[in-house]
Amino acid sequence: MTTTTVPAVRRGPVDLTARWYLAAQLRVARWFWGIGALVAAVAIAFYATVATTVDTSVVQYGMQAAIWFPFSVFIGLTLAYLPVHVASGLTRRTLARGSLLAAAGTTGVYGGAFAVLLLVEKAVYAAFGWHWAVGGVAPGAVATAGYIGANVATFLVSNVSGLLVGMIYLRLGGWWGTLTLPVTVGPVVALTALLAQDAGPWGDGAGGLLLTSVLALVVAAVMAVVYDRLTRGARVPPKR
């Protein structure tokens, strides 16, 4: 009898870095979305009880929390992880790539959870004969998909922004970190404002949402390049 030995899978440094960031995000994400689903259910029940007409989504108002919560976690991870990463013999280039992959992965988790909650809410509204609408968008399938896509793109901008804010504070200190907030965080605020304006300033429906999504992806790409360059030149802060 012969036995076959399966070689162990060795993960690359980028993969390991991305997994570290993702593991930290997922630990808090499961609590965030578990509590969020419970709060949404209670809020919908309360809304149906006190309102004369149920005509708008409740879950959509959780978008703000879903944007800023992982954003703040990424800031903390960026400030804490660089010394550990370098001490492990890994490069700053690996750190940049792995953390950006984790930002994309976190976007998928939060975007997927947000989409599921919206669609479940939409089904519940239909079952009770209520009118369902989000952000002034008609409840059609195309417009709903456009709204979800625009929010997912905004999640990506927020996550990359969190990495960038943390790295600027780490490299340039508190003054520059604070002074650059209009540039590093301003795009996130602007995109959430666009989504709040009934599908954006380009008109209602999927067209305006598509433009918002494209704009968000361009902003995320620019931020990612800046973050990558800053990370490659980062120094480990001295111990105090």
Rank of each mutant, 00 (worst) to 15 (best):
L170Q: 11
A143Y: 00
V157E: 03
A138N: 04
T184K: 01
G149S: 10
V142A: 15
N159W: 11
D198K: 05
V183Y: 05
L181S: 13
L181I: 06
A199K: 02
A141Y: 10
V160E: 03
A141S: 06
A141H: 04
G177K: 01
P182W: 07
I168W: 05
A150Q: 00
F155Y: 05
L179S: 14
Y147S: 12
L170H: 05
G136I: 07
P201D: 11
F155I: 04
W175N: 10
L191I: 10
T192K: 13
A143C: 03
D198F: 06
G146F: 02
G136E: 05
A141I: 05
T192A: 15
A153K: 00
V185S: 02
L163V: 02
W176V: 06
G200F: 04
A143G: 04
S161Y: 12
G149M: 09
A138Q: 03
V183E: 04
I168A: 03
V189A: 14
P187Y: 04
V165N: 01
G135C: 14
G173H: 13
D198V: 01
A196T: 08
W175S: 14
G177M: 03
G136Q: 04
T192R: 10
L181M: 09
L194F: 14
G173K: 11
V152I: 08
A196F: 09
V157N: 05
W132D: 08
A143L: 00
A193G: 09
M167Q: 14
G177V: 06
V188H: 05
Q197H: 11
T192I: 11
L181F: 08
Y169L: 13
L164A: 11
G140V: 03
Y147N: 07
W176G: 13
W176Q: 12
A133I: 15
A190W: 14
Y147V: 10
L172K: 09
L194S: 06
T154S: 09
P182C: 09
L164G: 01
G173D: 12
A196W: 02
G174W: 07
R171E: 08
G166I: 01
S161C: 11
I148V: 15
G146Y: 02
G177R: 00
G149H: 06
A196C: 03
S161L: 09
V142T: 11
L181E: 08
P187I: 15
L181K: 04
G200D: 11
V185G: 01
T178R: 08
V185H: 02
L191Y: 08
F155K: 00
V165C: 09
N151G: 13
V188S: 05
L194Q: 12
V165M: 08
V152W: 00
A153R: 00
R171H: 11
A145S: 06
W176L: 13
L195R: 01
T192Y: 15
L179F: 12
N159C: 14
G135D: 12
H131A: 15
L172H: 10
V188R: 00
T192D: 14
L163H: 01
F155R: 00
A150G: 10
A145C: 07
Y169F: 14
G174N: 08
T154R: 00
Y169I: 03
L181D: 12
P201M: 09
M167N: 05
L194I: 06
G186W: 14
A199H: 04
A143Q: 03
G186R: 12
